[in-house]
Simulated scan of single mutants.
Amino acid sequence: MSTSAPDNDHENRDKVVLVTGINGYIASHIGLQLLQKGYTVRGTSRAAAARENLLAGPFKGFEAQYQHVQVPDIVARGAFDAAVQGVHAIVHTASPVDFSLTTVDEFFGPAVGGNLSILESAKAAAGPQLRSFVVTSSVAAIADKWKQPADHAYTEADWNTTAESVARQTFDAHTAYAASKAAAERAVWDWTQQNSPSFAVAAVHPAVVTGPPVLWPATPDRLNETLLPIWTIWSGGKTMPPPIGGAGYIDVRDVASMHVWAVENPDRSHGQRYMLANGRAPPQAAADLLRNTFPERDIIVGSPGLGYIQDYGFPQGQPTLISSKALDALGLQHFIRFDKSILDTVEAFERQWPGLAKNIKQEQ
């Protein structure tokens, strides 16, 4: 799934873009788009093995443009000092997601601490050539179902201010995660206000991310939490996975493009938040789509049509997530549709693990 570097982007080769957590689902897409545009990419990961996995996989053919730095603990003081030296832009995606955690503070530690750690390193060690800092946040930092009416139209002006108190009162891992995303992003803007950095700062807020990965785990059970439900449905799982959050969705390729745009347009992106969501599509929508597209496969029925509308937009009377700001920035009329995102994903599953999903119906 790699492409050799284009000849017409040599001017970008002297620019180094740091992508933290480079072996993540979104980050590996961002890295690949930057490499394809001719940039030198420096990635970080907790484990050194990520470098070989990337160069053997999506970054194959880009060896001369790729650098790697191991950062075992993203919240340690000075953790990113070496990684940021001489970079022209930073895309900070690294924020561990672990829903087995049992306290709000366990979520807050790496989310808030990681953001502040890399900002401090950027200020102290990057150098004057640094122009852009882009952090990956989430619609979870924006949508506040406890505060807003059921049909609220969310924009980047909104903040999730209630999740923390709710999670501290009655702990729930997903609520604590949402609270940690809001707190981590708030920490970025507070730091920016206090430090007046010489580089632009922007935040990207994707909904639930789908679409084909470019870096693969060894086995499907190790897919990330937004792709595993698609695999479960595709491979014949008998239990419908629960919706994630409010079931808003966006394709990973659009999310990566938004990060790259913010890197390349610091004068426009500074101080801005960009939300990316296409509509509402719970796992039932994926099951219905795959059952109708592949009638030869035994795919869970569930409750057909429940929880979404035919064009996968936002149902009337329910919350909407307004993404016009991101669309305008990218010069798009619309993002990649849900049906294309899901079909491209299962096509990629079959390329990666041909025949592993053994739910072909037996002829009667």
Rank of each mutant, 00 (worst) to 15 (best):
P72M: 07
E11H: 09
Q65T: 10
V84D: 03
P354R: 06
F314W: 14
V91L: 03
E363P: 02
L18K: 09
N8G: 10
H205E: 11
Q194E: 13
S196W: 06
I26M: 08
Q65R: 14
T210C: 09
D73P: 00
R51G: 02
F199R: 02
A47G: 10
I250G: 01
R253N: 08
W189L: 03
P217F: 10
P354C: 03
A140G: 11
A143E: 14
A163W: 02
M258V: 13
E11Y: 06
P354E: 08
T320A: 15
Q362F: 11
V91W: 01
A27W: 04
Y312H: 12
S198G: 05
G109E: 14
F199W: 04
I90S: 00
L343Y: 04
V75F: 11
Q70I: 13
V214S: 01
P295Q: 12
Y177I: 12
Q310E: 14
T293F: 00
E363D: 11
W216R: 07
I299V: 12
R268K: 15
T102N: 13
Y274M: 07
G61R: 04
I118L: 05
Y39E: 01
N8L: 14
L101R: 14
D9E: 10
I309V: 15
T226P: 01
Q36T: 07
D105R: 09
V201C: 12
V201F: 11
A143D: 07
L215I: 08
L327S: 07
G236W: 15
S100T: 15
R291M: 03
Q318D: 06
M258N: 02
S100E: 14
L356A: 08
S137L: 09
E225F: 15
F107L: 07
N160R: 00
R131Q: 14
F108C: 06
R297W: 07
E185F: 07
A178I: 00
I142H: 00
A125E: 14
I233P: 01
S4V: 09
I90E: 01
A329H: 11
I360F: 09
K358S: 09
H259N: 03
G236Q: 15
A218F: 10
D158W: 06
F199V: 04
A5S: 13
M1Q: 13
G305M: 13
D9F: 14
A79P: 00
V16I: 15
P354N: 09
S45L: 11
K145F: 14
K181F: 05
L356V: 08
E156W: 09
T20A: 06
A79M: 04
N359V: 11
Q310F: 09
I30R: 11
S117Q: 14
A48I: 12
I142F: 00
R51D: 10
F108G: 02
G271L: 08
L54I: 10
S138N: 06
P241W: 07
P213D: 03
S138M: 07
D298I: 04
